[in-house]
């Protein structure tokens, strides 16, 4: 199977997170855990800086966490113009207790009333669309 994001590759960062995007396109949140020392590495990388291993297991993780921080964007910035009609929208950084409290970014979905740092959130996955640059997207939703 060929993945949508592979046809629309965003280049320039570390770029060791292909398996993350593959997982999301398959409908599963998968995160990299060192095959040797079992530590989580995020952002994904090519080598475990803790133990030196080059091997990671991409482990399915329950998409739930707490809001670490967030911002509500009120301006359609150049490189994310696809979201113009969604302005203002909230982007959340959430900590995942099931994955060493690593932090994952996602656009908030649904009710914003209880938006606050520390609030519990649950993740869902949007399939690739123009809005997310033809990548799949993790969405955070406030637990009610």
């Amino acid at each position: 199977m060929s993945y949508s994001f592979e046809q629309h590759k965003i280049v320039g960062a570390i770029e060791a997170d292909d398996d993350y995007w593959r997982g999301l396109e398959d409908g599963v949140l998968r995160l990299p855990r060192c095959a040797s020392c079992r530590g989580w590495t995020w952002p994904a990388h090519f080598r475990c800086g803790q133990c030196g291993s080059w091997d990671f297991d991409w482990v399915a993780v329950e998409p739930r966490g707490r809001i670490f921080t967030y911002t509500r964007t009120h301006y359609a910035f150049d490189r994310v113009l696809e979201r113009r009609e969604d302005v203002p929208y909230v982007t959340v950084v959430a900590e995942l207790p099931d994955a060493g409290n690593l932090r994952l970014i996602g656009v908030l979905k649904g009710d914003e009333a209880d938006l606050a740092i520390g609030a519990p959130v649950r993740g869902t996955i949007d399939p690739p669309s123009a809005k997310s640059k033809f990548y799949p997207a993790l969405r955070w939703e406030l637990e009610r």
Binding site: T69, T91, I105, Y135
Partner: peptide
């Protein structure tokens, strides 16, 4: 310098203003 991660751009974050807002 074209080093903005897909983790930002996919989730509506482009500018340093937004990232520093976090």
């Amino acid at each position: 310098q074209n080093d903005t991660s897909s983790q930002y751009l996919v989730n509506g974050l482009d500018s340093p203003a937004q990232i520093l807002a976090l």
